[in-house]
Write a protein that binds this DNA or RNA. Structure first.
Lengths: 168, 168
DNA sequence: CTTGGAATGTCAACAAGGCTGACTTATCCT
DNA sequence: AGGATAAGTCAGCCTTGTTGACATTCCAAG
């Protein structure tokens, strides 16, 4: 397991050495810090955190989504999500409407105030992404997305795919 | 800010649209979950968590590093790191040696037992990385790394660069 | 040489945000 | 009528982040 080049690969498989893989792992670690840094800065001092950001993001992406669906996207327990959702609803950033067809369900929407914060957060996060994309160029970006998609668990890939083509 | 193509870019800058950027953001979110899933599974029930994994990883990468240096790599407060370090030392996974030159400093090393756990964790994490790399191919991997590097904060990029060429 | 400031590391206490388990309420569907 | 499902709640725990106070050690200016 120390070296995955085996005997048959040679030069063509050099990108699969333990050393290359380790560099990728460290790149993920350091990059993710940058990825979350800007929204974290905005949220700090607002009594909100990363958990609130995630909820706001995905409610914005799928207006009218149910609590259960959000749960499965975020991969947390309902008690965890509920704590976050409750504060967002109390503060008037999120609205919860009883389902028309199935009255057990609650459908979640951002209020105007919620959409405003969403905008602020995603603007900041997109700005960093834009700079990185621009610096790396379109081919690199395609590769970036390919590797990330291959790294996801099956369930997450499904959610990702369901979301990603919402707007053509 | 809704659309960054401006007037002058046209087709060539289509990869910088808000929609493309948002897909990248969601890909980072879902992929990072997969990235940490395997080590998390191993650690759960061991009284250790992701913080312990990070400490073990970077001590392994820079044997003899000081607490301060580790602090700056991990980007947490020294009190946070200290708690983690204390339990690792108590459990005999990490050894802390008083500095020869400067006795205020502690130099950190993995014990055999610590190296064993490091191996188990990094094997699991590398396995997922290897599968993703193999599925995406060498060109995609190059792009992946380029975008991640461009996404890092300056300080993190420095740490990343310092670490990454340790072994040629 | 001494003394005060800077640097390194430790301890205590608190908050955010995960988790489990047990339970209620309302609704749906067979 | 009765079991299954969706959502919400309460209590309590753990990990991992935070700040503040403190001990030790080093070094440089007087």
């Amino acid at each position: 397991m120390v070296d995955s080049q085996g005997g048959q690969g040679g030069q063509a498989l050099l990108f699969l050495t333990d050393d290359q893989l380790r560099k990728g792992i460290e790149a993920m670690f350091f990059a993710y810090r940058g990825f979350t840094a800007d929204p974290d800065r905005i949220l700090e001092g607002m009594a909100y955190g990363r958990a609130h950001h995630r909820a706001i993001h995905f409610i914005n992406r799928s207006p009218g989504t149910t609590v259960n669906n959000l749960l499965s996207i975020l991969g947390v327990t309902k008690q965890s999500l509920n704590r976050v959702l409750r504060s967002l609803i109390e503060d008037g950033l999120v609205e919860s409407r009883v389902g028309k067809k199935d009255k057990r369900e609650r459908h979640l929407f951002l209020t105007e105030k919620g959409a405003l914060l969403e905008r602020e957060l995603s603007d900041a996060q997109r700005e960093r992404m834009r700079a990185a994309y621009r610096a790396a160029g379109p081919d690199a970006v395609a590769g970036f997305r390919q590797v990330l998609e291959a790294m996801m668990d099956e369930d997450m890939r499904r959610h990702y795919a369901t979301l990603k083509d919402r707007q053509v």
